[in-house]
């Protein structure tokens, strides 16, 4: 019993980790007042670069870093549009969601002999107990042997929470998202803060994508990122635009994905058609938004382009 609970927890954490990275990305961007619908596209490019660099370098950490960097670079495109050119942030985000997957598949076909799928990564992200768990006969250790990306995302959440609420930097970020004009008069460089926030948001989303291809699966394909970016955005709303709330929401959505795996197994007691099970995370996201979103308000200037001197 303990072992199956532990197994459920570790599968939940495994699926929640990519969502958590992306969700934290959404938190920082939206707290600085930039709506980031493009998280999905940033996750996709991060997932591809993670798998590709992980495959060619043989080192998952290089892949992980490349995933974050590629997400960050794509986010800069969104930043230029939404901050400098005051574009409609939703439309710009949609453009990112075309460019990210387009670029990922384009590069995949170029690098992997015309295939829309990368080769499997030989060395995925290591687990916390590593080879010790393989040798150990202790079933508890085997069940609790989660990937390193899980502790990393929790550290990221802690750091983000600390930065946002305990440092002057965080105060600046939040003031830019709430009232950029007031922040501006206090001498805060509104554009710079927004740029940094959107870039970090992209890096985190890219980490989320790379977690998908280096810790959850071990290759990239067209359907690796299928709505996780949007589920993460729902988690941001659900989590009231706060890091800890978003993390909790991601855990819930990760649990829904874990259920798909746990209940979908051939030896499970209840037989539910796999297509209905696969629907679960999306239905749960919708239902939880309906039930809880009323108590949730976005940063005041979220999504509104800031024009200096207006």
């Amino acid at each position: 019993m303990l072992i199956s609970i532990l197994l459920a927890v570790s599968i939940t954490l495994m699926y929640a980790a990519p969502l958590m990275f992306a969700g934290l990305g959404g938190v920082i961007s939206e707290n600085a007042g930039v709506v980031n619908i493009g998280i999905e596209g940033m996750m996709t490019i991060g997932a591809f670069c993670g798998a590709a660099v992980g495959y060619f370098s043989g080192n998952p950490w290089w892949g992980f870093a490349a995933g974050g960097l590629s997400g960050g670079l794509l986010a800069l495109v969104h930043a230029v549009a939404s901050i400098s050119f005051r574009a409609d942030q939703t439309i710009s985000g949609v453009a990112i969601n075309f460019i990210g997957p387009g670029l990922a598949l384009f590069l995949s076909r170029k690098l992997f002999a015309g295939s829309a799928m990368t080769k499997p990564v030989e060395h995925p992200i290591p687990t916390i107990f590593g080879s010790y768990a393989a040798k150990s006969s202790n079933l508890l250790i085997k069940a609790a042997n989660i990937e390193m990306t899980v502790p990393i995302v929790f550290i990221c959440a802690l750091v983000l929470w600390f930065v946002l609420y305990k440092t002057s930097w965080g105060l600046r970020i939040r003031s830019v998202g709430e009232n950029p004009a007031a922040a501006d008069t206090l001498g805060i460089n509104v554009y710079k803060i927004k740029y940094v926030a959107v870039f970090v948001s992209g890096v985190l989303s890219g980490f989320g994508g790379a977690t998908m291809t280096l810790a959850v699966m071990n290759y990239f394909t067209q359907s690796t990122i299928s709505g996780q970016g949007f589920i993460a955005l729902a988690a941001v709303i659900f989590g009231k635009w706060k890091p800890h709330g978003t993390m909790a929401a991601c855990l819930l959505f990760g649990f829904a994905q874990a259920l798909v795996v746990l209940l979908g197994g051939s030896n499970s007691k209840i037989q539910i058609p796999s297509s209905l099970l696969s629907m679960l995370p999306y239905v749960l996201t919708l239902v939880s938004l309906v039930l809880f979103v009323r108590h949730s308000t976005a940063p005041k200037a979220d999504g509104i382009p800031y024009v200096k001197g207006h």
């Binding site: 495109v77 409609d88 460019i99 387009g102 598949l105």
Partner: peptide, 15 residues
């Protein structure tokens, strides 16, 4: 997929 990149860039510049 070059077409998807083109579409993305077109949407981007419309934005």
């Amino acid at each position: 997929e070059v077409v998807n990149i083109m579409i993305g860039v077109i949407v981007f510049f419309v934005a």
